[in-house]
Design a protein around this nucleic acid. Structure first.
Lengths: 248, 248
DNA sequence: CGGCTGATTGATCCCGGTCAAATGAGGTGG
DNA sequence: CCACCTCATTTGACCGGGATCAATCAGCCG
């Protein structure tokens, strides 16, 4: 479908984020912007963009909406291993690993830019700043993944959910998606359960425990945290792994 | 301490591994080998090589011994988030992220090569093949980290331990540390517990369950798996995430 | 109004944690 | 060679966090 030139403002946060990860040359910035505008796509909620085992033939950059990376076991058990938020990219390893080891699904309607492999390679060939920014993103991603491991392995249900909420808040903030003490929470409790390694039932009870203790307000797909420090304390949350200083 | 020229054979597996990840130019290979031989180090068991929050000022490549990446919570709970085996490197992000988000400890005595940041940068500046091999290593690492997430979040105790054993086997094999159906298992049950998110007591009982069912023999720091397929089935293990085809 | 999806609640069970003690297996010094 | 210490493995008893199963409730949409 046709997209207006006002889409430029749509890709701006991506450029800003990449540039914060690693300073981009003016040319890299321009050609990235152009490539993104060239490949704008939309997807509905609950669609698989790519599945485990699929060949990787393009890089996707998220402009709006929430996605998740997940893996499943043969018998249907499912674990969301990470979220993907606006400004982040999906498959920056397009040309290094041939097939996906996990799946990527939309959790909400999504707008993203798809850059084909060949084009992406020509983007990074000439200028190493873009490749470095993407590598940097991979490294931050890796750090997030490690934090998720300790979350799943060693935190209690309450700590896990609180920690996830803290992380979501801090990751949405630099892209302007946090408004005061609130942000949208457009996903189902089933998704939150799969992200925290809990059953839906117990996730629900844990959310209610957080509500009862006054740590969160979760209503109408909106999460409000009146006392962020209290929530962080309950979650044993320390944001250093997110490398946020880069975005300030 | 002085190291003989026979150390060349010590670094050879590293070169081979890097080359499998991404073909290295002859110069890259030579200068990497030289840099490693120049920075050989030893460490005893149970030492922290670097801790969460420390600045990263060098890249370490493991030549022999087992290490682990771990994170801890304020109250002492500890999660091993990954193992590091011979041929693998520790901090390939030396020049992109300034401080460690996790700690790295030896689990056995270790020999490694330390390449200082400045030297490392000059290694990658001239030739992009080495940087790409390291990026590739980071990506594989990332995939392993995701598998650990589903291991911790969705597998039962028995599946987790079986899965860890399968992974150890497959990661040791390409560096020649698997002998038939056996490999060394030089770590304590406490370490295995911290890697699987279990308590030591329950890990012990799970190991005994694996023994009783005939899936493993674990004795004298040696792990033997007589029927690898059976163990893989019990673990719901599928090795694709390890990208092993590269090493065959 | 019926059907669907997601949130919530209740009852019950069991996997895995916790606490505590016993057993082994080196290592060391007398 | 033995006494002793330390660290790792193992076992037992008990408990509780979170899973499971099932039913109800609340929107939302056609």
């Amino acid at each position: 479908m046709p997209l207006s030139t006002s889409d430029r403002s749509l890709v701006e946060p991506v450029i800003r984020r990449m540039n914060a990860l690693r300073p981009l040359s003016a040319e890299a910035r321009a050609s990235l912007e152009y490539a993104m505008l060239d490949g704008l796509q939309r997807a509905g909620a609950s669609e698989d963009l790519i599945s485990e085992g699929d060949p990787v033939d393009s890089v996707r950059v998220v402009l709006s909406g929430w996605l998740c990376r997940y893996k499943t076991l043969e018998d249907g058990r499912r674990q969301i291993v990470n979220f993907i938020f606006p400004g982040e990219s999906c498959d920056s390893h397009a040309f290094l690993l041939p097939v996906m080891d996990h799946s990527i699904a939309t959790m909400t309607p999504v707008v993203y830019a798809e850059i084909k492999r060949a084009r992406f390679e020509s983007l990074t060939r000439g200028d190493r700043s873009l490749a470095e920014a993407l590598w940097c993103e991979t490294l931050v991603n890796n750090a997030v993944q490690r934090e998720w491991a300790i979350n799943l392995g060693r935190r209690t249900a309450l700590e896990r959910v609180a920690h996830l909420f803290c992380e979501i808040f801090e990751r949405l903030r630099p892209v302007g998606l946090v408004d005061g003490n609130s942000c949208v929470m457009p996903v189902t409790q089933m998704d939150l359960a799969d992200a925290t390694g809990l059953s839906v039932v117990h996730l629900n009870r844990t959310v209610q425990e957080l509500r009862a203790s006054g740590l969160i307000v979760l209503r109408d797909r909106t999460l409000t945290v009146n006392d962020p420090d209290a929530l962080k304390a309950a979650a044993l949350f320390s944001p250093s792994y997110l490398q946020l200083y880069r975005f300030s």
